Simulated assay, not measured.
Amino acid sequence: MQVADVQARTQIELADRQFQAQRAIEEDKFCRQKLETAYEAVTEWLDGMERLIDEPWGHICADGPEHREAARKIVDDWPWETLRPPLAVSRLSYCWSEEVRELIYSLGGISSKLCFGASVANTNREAPKEKQGDYRRAQSEVWESRQDFQVKVAKTRRTIRKELLGAES
């Protein structure tokens, strides 16, 4: 009787350990899928932002009233589209690491600087000769902000990639 009791307890303990191990595997798989989904949304948003960031620059450097109007529209809409991730992206922000979160939210400051520079450049492009320095400085600020933005996006992607590859191990 005692032997049967010991065997039953041993089998129960083994079944419990197996259940706990399987549960841990399933939890890890679920968290991994959430992380991949969250970071996929972030990278898609970043791809769109990279394409969008070239638009004000192109219009600010081009001549003609249609480019001034296009630049004005972009600058007017810019903060609403770029200062914060859209809801579809941020709804999974609880999955982001602290480093990724900081990188993403730091894009807002760069975006704001780019928007301000683009607005000044667009306003001063037709200015008298003595004001052309303002236009050139603002143009330079837009270019620098664009570069800063691209560097930050690349760093965000590297961090995400590192985290996803690390999550596989």
Rank of each mutant, 00 (worst) to 15 (best):
H67K: 06
A118P: 08
P85V: 04
T159W: 00
S97D: 03
R101N: 08
D47H: 03
E66R: 05
W80C: 11
R101W: 15
R91M: 12
L103F: 10
K152F: 07
A71D: 02
Y135D: 03
G133F: 02
T82R: 03
W78I: 03
G166D: 11
S119R: 09
D134R: 03
P128N: 01
T159S: 09
C115W: 10
Q7C: 05
C95D: 05
C115R: 08
W143S: 04
E26Q: 09
G117A: 14
D77Q: 08
A118R: 00
R17H: 12
P79S: 02
A167R: 09
S119W: 09
T10I: 09
Q22F: 04
Q7L: 15
A24R: 13
E26F: 11
T82P: 01
K152G: 01
Y94V: 15
C61H: 06
A127D: 11
A62E: 15
V100W: 05
K113H: 10
Q139I: 00
V75N: 03
D148M: 10
L164V: 14
C61E: 12
G166I: 01
K113S: 14
S97W: 04
R146K: 13
Y135N: 03
V89E: 04
E50P: 09
Y39S: 10
K129T: 13
D148W: 01
P56K: 01
A138S: 13
R32C: 00
I12Y: 06
Y94Q: 13
P128H: 01
Q132G: 00
Y94A: 15
R146G: 12
E66T: 12
S140V: 00
L87I: 11
L165Y: 05
A138H: 05
P65F: 04
P56Y: 01
Y105M: 12
S97H: 05
S119Q: 04
S106N: 15
T123Q: 11
R84W: 06
K113Y: 08
R84V: 11
V151T: 11
Q33S: 12
L114R: 05
K155Y: 02
F149D: 07
R125I: 05
